[in-house]
C-alpha cells in the first residue's frame, strides 16, 4: 500500500480526517523552507503538498503569487523542490505531493520528471493547469504508474464530468471548494456539502479532500465533517509572509499545524 492510501486508511481507523498542508517550496529561502516543512511534519501534518514556484500562477490568489515570487527570487526551481523532497524523506514518511503548474514540468522533461520524482520518493503530483483532456501527454511518457496523479474537481464540474475524472483518479480527489483562486474568501459550506455529496457517489471510494479558502480550525472541522481531508495553503503562506524574518517562524508553523490538526479529530 502506498503512503497516500495508508494515511487515509489510518485516518479511517482512528476516526480522524486528514490535514493536507501546502507551502511553496523555497519560500522565503530554501533553507528556511526546509525548516518550516520539517516542523509542519513533526507537528502532525498528514499529507504535505510542496508547491513548485512558477512565474505565472494563474490559479493562485495574491498570497501564493507573492510566495511563489519570493521562492523564485531565492533561486528555487523544480530541481530544488525535488531535492527538498529527497532530503525530507530521510526524516519523515509523510506522503509528499508536488503541486505544480505544467510548464516547469514540461521544461524539466515529463519522463525525466517521473524518474526524478520516484527517486526522490515523492508520492503524488497535482498539476493545476493540466486537465484530464491534456494529461495523457504527460502520463504516457511516464515509465511506470507509481506516482499518483491527483485530479481536481471544481464546483463548476458537471456530474458526468466528475465521474470521468474519478475514473482516472488516484491518490485522492482534490475538490476545489469555490469558484475562485486560492486564498479567496467566502467558503460556503452548504455549497461544499452539496458538491461533496455529488462527488462521493461518483468517486469509486477514492478519498476526497477539499481545498481553497480554508484557513481556520473551525473551517477545517466543518470541512472534515463532509470530506476525508482539508487542504490549507494560503493561511500557511500568510503566516510565512507575516513572519519572514522571525527566527521562530518554523515553530509558529508547527503550532499552526497543531491547532488545525486538532480540528480534524472527530
Amino acid at each position: 500500500m502506498n503512503r497516500i492510501a495508508r494515511v487515509f486508511d489510518e485516518m479511517r481507523r482512528k476516526g480522524e480526517k486528514a490535514l493536507v498542508g501546502f507551502v511553496t517550496a523555497g519560500d522565503p529561502t530554501v533553507e528556511v523552507s526546509m525548516d518550516i516543512v520539517k516542523a509542519m511534519c513533526e507537528a502532525g501534518l498528514d499529507i504535505l503538498e510542496l508547491g513548485v514556484p512558477f512565474s505565472d500562477p494563474t490559479a493562485d490568489g495574491p498570497v501564493i503569487q507573492r510566495s511563489s515570487g519570493r521562492a523564485l527570487k531565492a533561486g528555487a526551481s523544480l530541481t530544488t523542490v525535488l531535492e527538498m523532497a529527497r532530503e525530507l524523506r530521510h526524516t519523515t514518511q509523510i506522503p509528499i505531493v508536488l503541486f505544480s503548474y505544467y510548464n516547469p514540468i514540461l521544461a524539466y522533461g515529463v519522463d525525466r520528471f517521473y524518474t526524478a520524482a520516484r527517486e526522490a520518493d515523492v508520492d503524488g503530483l497535482l498539476v493545476v493547469d493540466l486537465p484530464p483532456e491534456e494529461s495523457a501527454e504527460m502520463t504516457s511518457a511516464w515509465t511506470g504508474n507509481e506516482l499518483a496523479l491527483i485530479r481536481l474537481v471544481a464546483p463548476t464540474t458537471p456530474p458526468e464530468r466528475m465521474a470521468s475524472i474519478a475514473e482516472k483518479a488516484s491518490g485522492f480527489l482534490y475538490l476545489v471548494s469555490m469558484t475562485g483562486v486560492t486564498g479567496s474568501a467566502g467558503l460556503n459550506l452548504d455549497e461544499v456539502s452539496g458538491v461533496v455529496g455529488s462527488l462521493r457517489t461518483r468517486a469509486r471510494g477514492i478519498p476526497i479532500c477539499v481545498g481553497f479558502g480554508i484557513s481556520t480550525p473551525d473551517q477545517v472541522r466543518a470541512v472534515g465533517s463532509l470530506a476525508d481531508g482539508a487542504v490549507v495553503g494560503s493561511a500557511f503562506e500568510r503566516l510565512i509572509e507575516e513572519h519572514l524574518h522571525d527566527p521562530a517562524l518554523a515553530l509558529r508553523m508547527g503550532e499552526a499545524v497543531r491547532s488545525l490538526k486538532a480540528a480534524t479529530l472527530i
Binding site: 494563474t58 493547469d129 486537465p131 483532456e133 481536481l152 458537471p158 464530468r161
Partner: peptide, 20 residues
C-alpha cells in the same frame, strides 16, 4: 477536436474553467 494545432494549442487551464 481537442483544439490541437499539430502539437500546439489545447486547453491547459484549471478545472474550474474547463466546463466553461
Amino acid at each position: 477536436l481537442m483544439g490541437h494545432f499539430g502539437p500546439y494549442g489545447g486547453r491547459y487551464v484549471a478545472e474550474t474553467l474547463m466546463p466553461a
